[in-house]
Amino acid sequence: MPLISILFWNLNKKPLHRSIASIANLYGVDVVILAECEMDPSEVLVALNPEHSKPRYFFAPSIECEKIVMFTRFPASFMPIVMEADRLSIRHLRTPEMQNGVLLASIHFPSKLHWDESDQAVESSQYSSMIRDAEDISGHQRTIVIGDLNMNPFDPGIINTNGFHAVQSQLIAMKRTRTVQKQSYAFFYNPMWNFFGDLSSGPSGTFYYPPKGHASLYWHMFDQVLLRPDLLSTLNADSVSILDSDGKDTLLNSNRQPDSTKYSDHLPILLRLEI
């Protein structure tokens, strides 16, 4: 089965086109999804398609989603838009090599700087509803959510039944739904739980925020991948990674935290699935 590789990176408005191209080339990325990208898309496209080689990447224009920019290693017609909002783009991805298509929901969720936990929980129910509508339109639930959710995996917006309802155990997710007060809610699986702490390989999160008060997590897992159970058979131990290098330079500073001076304050995440 073909391997589909999807990269997401919140660039923190930095001109990181060279690093993006380096990562895309190193991992053979099929879909590049960027948030807080202030570069002109043509700048990124030229970096992704170097001189003296056949261009491989296409820009996939959005209609309503202004917060996310996408490039694909195939014509954008293989990833038509199903539904969009300002911070959400849901596309149906199916290349000729893929047996079945998938829904790819890319998100740059409102941040905790401006919204509190309650605001985020309410908003996540809106996004979750749109994703279900897109699944009804597409006739399947092979759905990937990827992006900067600006919430941790344990935050209410991620775990609530009317939010993303994402759980840390594949066994639980494979039950597909849970019923609460006679209402059934579909699960997502959240592989990002596996990256917390430093006993797992790689960085302990995707975003580092030093403590201001008495309680602080230091590392946050704002950039996440969520998968519907129908895609769990395509998952293995290497399917999801948090990248700490662009292949040429480290993205971390001397304290092993995201180097927000030279690069972004977020680390990129990479998803690879055999679909």
Partner: peptide
């Protein structure tokens, strides 16, 4: 056409 324009124009 895209091959000749780095997909800036298709």
């Amino acid at each position: 056409l895209g091959d000749q324009t780095k997909n800036l124009v298709t």
